[in-house]
């Protein structure tokens, strides 16, 4: 069967089976390997994408349910030469250890800051609660999201000038 969806701003048409997971579709068919498979059961958050504006575990989405959806993966956020402020903050805060959880963490951070630009630490923890880091690097990951909030606030005020 065929589905059409928008990935990182680009409309794509794909041939899928009902038992293809969105995760496999993104990684295997589209080569978006920033989407990671951890547990495969929705518990670790490594496969997180933003689907229709909400955090989604792509390992739990059968491909046909992604039909007509709008999807953002970490590849759609920034490029190596032009990092998104959240990505920049992760680098500057030293939030990345093995890196496996980071694409999911960054997207969870983005979703949180989109809705709540000045979160408290507690709100950051709640926003990231679906993402597990087995290097246990949470302290710096949380610092990074808080730092990103400040960066984005400054950017926002700049653009209003």
């Amino acid at each position: 069967m065929q589905i059409t969806f928008t990935v990182n701003g680009e409309e794509r048409e794909l041939e899928v089976t009902p038992y293809t997971r969105l995760l496999d579709l993104l990684r295997e068919d589209l080569g978006l390997t920033g989407v990671k498979e951890g547990c495969g059961k929705g518990e670790c958050g490594a496969c997180t994408v933003i689907m229709n504006g909400e955090l989604t575990a792509s390992c739990l989405v059968p491909a046909p349910q992604a039909d007509q959806a709008e999807i953002l993966t970490v590849e759609g956020l920034g490029t190596r030469d032009d990092l998104h402020p959240i990505q920049e903050s992760f680098v500057e805060a030293g939030a990345v250890q093995c890196g496996y959880c980071i694409p999911g963490m960054i997207l969870a951070g983005k979703r949180l800051l989109d809705e709540n630009p000045q979160p408290t630490e507690k709100e950051v923890r709640y926003g990231l609660s679906g993402n597990i880091c087995r290097c246990t690097g949470y302290a710096k990951i949380i610092d990074a999201v808080m730092m990103a909030a400040d960066k984005l606030a400054v950017e926002g005020s700049d653009s209003n000038d």
Partner: peptide, 9 residues
């Protein structure tokens, strides 16, 4: 329930 990723679905 679960996590943000689970609650959205």
């Amino acid at each position: 329930v679960g996590s943000p990723q689970i609650r959205s679905r």
